[in-house]
Simulated assay, not measured.
Amino acid sequence: MISDNDWNNLLATRANAPAAVSTAYAERRRRPRLLSEHGTLFLVAADHPGRGSLGVGADALAMADRRDLLGRLVEALEHPDVDGVLGTPDVIEELLLLGVLDDRIVIGSMNRGGLAGASWEIDDRFTGYDAEAIERYRLDGGKMLLRIVDEDAGTIPTLEGCARAVSELADHGIAAMIEPLPYRRDTSGRLVLDRSTAANIRAVTVASALGTTSAYTWLKLPATEEPEKVAGATTLPTVVLGGVPSADPQADLSSWGRALAQPTVRGLVVGRALLYPPDGDVRGAVDAAARVLRVANGRTAEVIA
């Protein structure tokens, strides 16, 4: 929850002191390495609003209230197992101004032009951070979404944009986190994620080859039915994405746990499933995900069913 005082100060800073944003970037205390002391990475994602994706479950505007969203993010970031956040410039800067990103990993979201539901959704132009800004603002990496639809030529400029971003980030020695997702259109023309093993393996191999070097490339992959085959298609470090939350949080946790057990997988990047759990308990949802990561990393003998 954001207090009235903090909220009013944030709004006043936005209106009266825009230079405070660059100061906050410059003064942020950075963590020396991407992975935690346990060799894992646990991030909370909040870049969905940047492409107009505001819904969670039946609530089409769940993420629309910015004060509420920021409050949930602050609560998630207070958990000791959470390493940081992935977000668009506006969200990152609001968290900076709230003073909650010291010693946290901050990944900047780069392409948000594929607006949810738009006819050009797959042509996902780079409208957020670029590599130069990520380096200048001292962020820890850049994330890009790569939705692959064979029947949609909009995939081509997105592929090209991602390849360019990977190369530019690598030139600065900065991690590039690619989220390669195979999609198809159903009979109504709606885009749906293809969770088949073959399609996801193909997406992994395409994403792994993007850019002039893969030295700094990470992959952000969905939990699939055969995670060992999908994760086994690359040597690149990967993180498991939470994706669209199901109606059964326990099933989501179990699915993440199976994916986290793979040797290339280093952690979790989860957004709506943690920020907007069915019972409203953000702290409880984050804690449950943290336990799954600890189990996969061998730091507890607990079993997640």
Rank of each mutant, 00 (worst) to 15 (best):
E135K: 06
A207L: 12
D194R: 06
R195W: 10
G161N: 07
E121D: 12
R164N: 09
L181M: 12
L98W: 07
E78F: 05
E135C: 13
C162A: 14
N200K: 13
D102V: 08
L97I: 10
I178R: 00
I156M: 03
L86D: 08
L193M: 15
E135I: 04
I174L: 02
V206I: 15
I156C: 00
A170H: 09
D124W: 01
D152Q: 02
L193D: 10
I148Q: 05
I107E: 00
G108N: 09
L159Y: 01
G189C: 04
S208M: 07
I148C: 05
A165G: 09
M177H: 02
L159H: 00
A175P: 14
N200W: 06
R125C: 15
T187A: 14
D186I: 07
G84P: 15
R190C: 08
Y137K: 10
T127Y: 02
N111T: 12
I178W: 01
E151A: 11
V149T: 14
R195P: 15
A199K: 11
S167N: 10
W120C: 13
I201G: 11
A176K: 07
G173A: 14
I201F: 07
E78H: 13
L193I: 15
D102L: 08
A118G: 13
S196L: 12
G117W: 11
L77E: 03
R184N: 03
D152S: 03
H79R: 03
P180Q: 04
D103Y: 07
A199W: 12
I178G: 02
Y183V: 13
A165K: 10
G108S: 07
G142C: 01
V106Y: 00
Y137A: 04
G154M: 05
Y183G: 10
Y129I: 09
I156S: 01
N111I: 10
V149N: 13
